[in-house]
């Protein structure tokens, strides 16, 4: 019974982690930059949901739509402000890492000043009352809804990338930025859209964070970025299905650890990350990350 529970809970969490990783994956795939502030946008999504509920009693499912639009719009000017200067530099990957770390610190500080340091949570009943039984196991209703919303978002990204004109161009930029530029694609515009979409996905994942992760605090961002990074490292880059796979592998192993080796569970993401980077970095990521 414990094993089945861990597997099912892991699968639900896996979908959620897939959503959390998807935005980071998209930004990395298109721009080859590491958005270390990814988790901080998740944090902002969580606080948006909290305040929208507190002020106008907005249900988190609607907050998710609002956050989607807001963060996507926010992403466009942010892209033009931060990314093109980076791409002109000698080592954009490394510089982006440091730049977005600074950005993450600034966001965290502003959030702590604006919202205070305490933990904020949303009542679980907003996403359905009582436990929902799946295959004889009882799960919080909020989990089920978060899982469904995550699956829907992943599906939408899949449809966008593989069945829309802009998505086709996005994949072309992922494939080879120089060549895309040569064939006359407006690379910056496509990238800016992808950047906005990445932030929007982080925001949506953030809206469900109080339900999946318990609560939200201004300092939660860096940990979430790391977890998202683990997920996309396990899965493969530029492929939403790969991220789903990564999310589920991560979710199930996490729940498995919590069930059988609870005090060691928090060690898992770090060990998993190092091991996979060392054992199969290029295979799993679909690009060269080693050098001499």
């Amino acid at each position: 019974m414990m094993l089945e529970y861990a597997l099912l809970a892991g699968a639900i969490f896996g979908l959620y982690f897939a959503l959390a990783g998807l935005g980071l994956n998209l930004v990395f795939g298109v721009m080859r930059i590491v958005n270390l502030a990814h988790g901080d946008f998740m944090m902002l999504g969580a606080f948006s949901a909290f305040w929208l509920f507190r002020l106008i009693h907005l249900n988190p499912l609607f907050s998710a739509l609002f956050v989607l639009a807001l963060f996507a719009l926010l992403g466009l000017p942010l892209y033009y402000l931060l990314v093109p200067p980076l791409l002109r530099a000698k080592d954009p990957e490394m510089l982006s890492f440091i730049l977005f770390f600074g950005f993450s610190q600034a966001i965290e500080a502003l959030a702590a000043i604006a919202f205070g340091p305490s933990e904020r949570s949303l009542p679980g009943r907003l996403l359905g009352r009582g436990p929902i039984r799946i295959l004889g196991q009882a799960f919080p209703a909020a989990w089920t809804w978060s899982g469904i919303a995550s699956a829907a978002a992943v599906l939408a990204v899949y449809l966008y990338l593989y069945h829309s004109r802009l998505g086709y161009l996005t994949r072309a930029v992922m494939e080879d930025r120089e060549e895309a530029l040569a064939t006359g694609i407006d690379v910056h515009f496509v990238s800016a859209i992808a950047f906005g979409l990445g932030l929007a996905l982080a925001g949506i994942a953030g809206v469900f964070a109080p339900f999946m992760l318990g609560s939200a605090t201004p300092s939660m961002g860096l940990g979430l970025t790391l977890q998202s990074f683990v997920v996309i490292v396990i899965g493969s880059l530029g492929n939403p299905l790969g991220t789903v796979l990564g999310g589920i592998i991560y979710g199930v192993s996490l729940m498995f650890m919590q069930t059988y080796f609870s005090s060691w569970a928090s060690l898992l993401p770090y060990v998993l990350l190092i091991l996979i980077l060392l054992v199969r970095p290029s295979g799993l990521l679909g690009r060269q990350v080693r050098r001499a």
Binding site: M2, M212, S262
Partner: peptide, 20 residues
């Protein structure tokens, strides 16, 4: 009798394990 990190914020799986 188990310890979990203070940062733990989701206990559902642990509760299920304890109930078992």
């Amino acid at each position: 009798d188990h310890g979990v990190p203070t940062s733990t914020s989701s206990y559902t799986v642990l509760i299920n394990t304890i109930a078992a």
